[in-house]
Design a protein around this nucleic acid. Structure first.
Lengths: 212, 212
DNA sequence: CCAAAAGTGTTTTCGATACACCCATGG
DNA sequence: CCATGGGTGTATCGAAAACACTTTTGG
């Protein structure tokens, strides 16, 4: 039941590009800097990626490549841009759909095939991978500017405003005013009623994410 | 010189999707509303699109489809999103890369194969075309919120602040305060020194776009 | 009591808005 | 001189920032 187009030709009569996905997996180690997962391929560092398989969506392909190459599951990929340079890949005609996939640090601990590297001072990568990383960081910063934790990077099930504050500073890459930050975020959080324990100073209230 | 991958298979050994581009061409008739160009296909209205050909970038394909289907040249397409639903096209496995392509009304006058329709109250279209239109309008609004005329929708070579104001109100879809708008935009415009003539009231100064 | 961190009240600043007014032209 | 639209001074409002202060715990 092959359908024909207006010139009487089937879709498969035309040459088609290979379609790849490349993903900037961003994470923030507790007390650390914004970091990205890089894999080794052909001798240099690059972002994890794969070719799109038949019967698969782009998000499926991103999930598969991260499960295979880094043992990461349960991610929420966001499309960034299609790179379509005709000679960007010497293996042939390849479109690459860049993605952002933020992931909580605790999901990474078990499998150490890959190490997160701070995005500041990252070496040059092949293809468009440095450009993809820049887009990914910009997108992450934009999404975290207004909301507490749109990608679930915080520890579950509860967290303090200090933890949220440190996460936001790592994402933004610069200090954020303490009191203004609290006043912006607190209305968007659900207090659990419990307090953090075992710390110096006044115990912080613990919160839950309000919007999933 | 076919390259082999890590499993010793060439790129063309894998099934590949067809890749299409679909474009929301947005325009604003003088004194009119934000409008989109729709073409007729299979009995209903849809956005112009085509399949990506070999040796062609996405922007090339957008330009070709608009030249062929609507006689429009010299556009500046912006990527919006890749639609990758597995059953979105019953002709087979098709990815569609949605684009926005704003165009000045005066570029359309000559060829009337297509008519711009106001985006408010547009009929349902097949595929994801209504969704593409929504993305396109949102993107256009975001880009016009801060800058005078990022896509060159204004008459060349000069325009008045009133014309700019009316364009922005059409794009935004709601009235914008007159004095605040002027104060925001004027520093970003280059005065030509000449004045608009043949109108009632004080003649307006004419401006040129500052950033291309 | 002291250090450290949580949490809050208050002032300042800055930009956007609203509103009023003045200016320049055609009829 | 009046209607019309261009252009500008100024008060007001609100959000964000800065700063200082109070509160609550562990040691």
């Amino acid at each position: 039941m092959t359908k024909r187009d207006s010139q009487g030709r089937a879709l498969t009569d035309y040459p088609r590009p290979s379609v790849a996905v490349d993903t900037a997996v961003l994470t923030v180690p507790p007390g650390g800097q914004l970091s990205v997962i890089a894999v080794t391929g052909d001798g240099d560092l690059r972002l994890p990626g794969t070719f799109l398989h038949e019967g698969e969506t782009l998000a499926d392909a991103v999930a598969r490549s991260l499960a295979e190459k880094a043992g990461i599951t349960g991610i929420l990929p966001v499309q960034l841009h299609v790179f379509d340079g005709l000679d960007r890949d010497d293996r042939g005609w390849v479109l690459s759909v860049a993605h952002l996939a933020p992931v909580r640090m605790s999901r990474l601990a078990a499998d150490a095939r890959t190490t997160p590297l701070p995005v500041a001072a990252l070496p040059p990568m092949p293809f468009d991978h440095n450009e993809i990383l820049e887009l990914a960081v910009a997108e992450l910063r934009a999404r975290y500017a207004e909301h507490p934790d749109p990608f679930g990077l915080l520890p579950e099930p509860t967290f303090t405003i200090r933890e949220l504050h440190e996460l936001h500073e790592a994402v933004a890459g610069h200090p954020l005013p303490r009191d203004t930050f609290r006043r912006l975020m607190e209305p968007q959080l659900e207090p659990t009623g419990s307090l953090a324990r075992g710390t110096v100073g006044k115990p912080a209230r613990e919160f839950r994410r309000l919007v999933a």
